[in-house]
């Protein structure tokens, strides 16, 4: 399986795992721009080997590859937020940190996102395509680290298939 295939498998797997709520369009969507959902899985990674978390079964391989020094992965939270350019959406993390996301528009088909970790006093401006998983990692938690697995999807996108693409 190539890296690309693994990525696709993980992406589709995470999509199936995350909670899919019916969200009314707001913010950008209301303003005529496509609505944007941000899906976040909050994962705890530890160096001690642990039984695989069934909730992460579809992305286990990708996690093991991207975070090779960690052997235990457990999902602590699964969130889905509708991003808006008006107000940042907030996500409370289990380590007491607060993550904020604000949509800052579209540029060459990439979504500009302002990502803030308030307590750590870190701001990141990033551009991401739809359905592209990316990670934030390294905050200490529970004897390991937290990993935020994030990706963007349009509002109204049907749920990802249950099984990863071969």
């Amino acid at each position: 399986m190539s890296v690309l295939q693994r990525f696709r498998a993980g992406l589709l797997g995470l999509g199936a795992l995350l909670v899919l709520g019916v969200l009314a369009p707001a913010g950008d969507a209301a303003a005529g721009e496509p609505g944007l959902r941000l899906k976040v899985s909050v994962i705890q990674a530890t160096k001690e080997k642990a039984a695989p978390d069934p909730a992460l079964a579809k992305i286990q391989g990708e996690l093991q590859e991207a975070f090779a020094g960690y052997q235990g992965f457990k999902r602590l939270q699964a969130e889905e937020k509708l991003l808006s350019s008006d107000t940042p959406v907030k996500l409370e993390l289990p380590n007491g940190e607060s993550a904020e996301f604000k949509h800052q528009g579209l540029e060459k088909n990439l979504h500009k996102i302002r990502f803030t970790l308030a307590k750590s006093k870190v701001n990141l401006d990033l551009k991401a395509p739809l359905k592209k998983m990316f990670y934030q990692a390294g905050m200490k938690h529970g004897g390991g680290i937290l990993i935020l697995a994030m990706y963007l999807a349009p509002v109204g996108e049907p749920p990802a298939p249950d099984k990863p693409t071969p």
């Binding site: 990525f7 590859e65 750590s120 006093k121 870190v122 701001n123 990141l124 401006d125 990670y135």
Partner: peptide
């Protein structure tokens, strides 16, 4: 994923791991 800018006013160091292969994984390390 493209990281356009990073502000770190606290004691944290931000390190970005970017994929070289298409479809690889972007990790923003704090």
């Amino acid at each position: 994923v493209v990281i356009e800018g990073i502000e770190s006013e606290g004691s944290k160091t931000v390190l970005v791991s970017q994929p070289v292969e298409p479809g690889g994984t972007t990790v923003i390390w704090l």
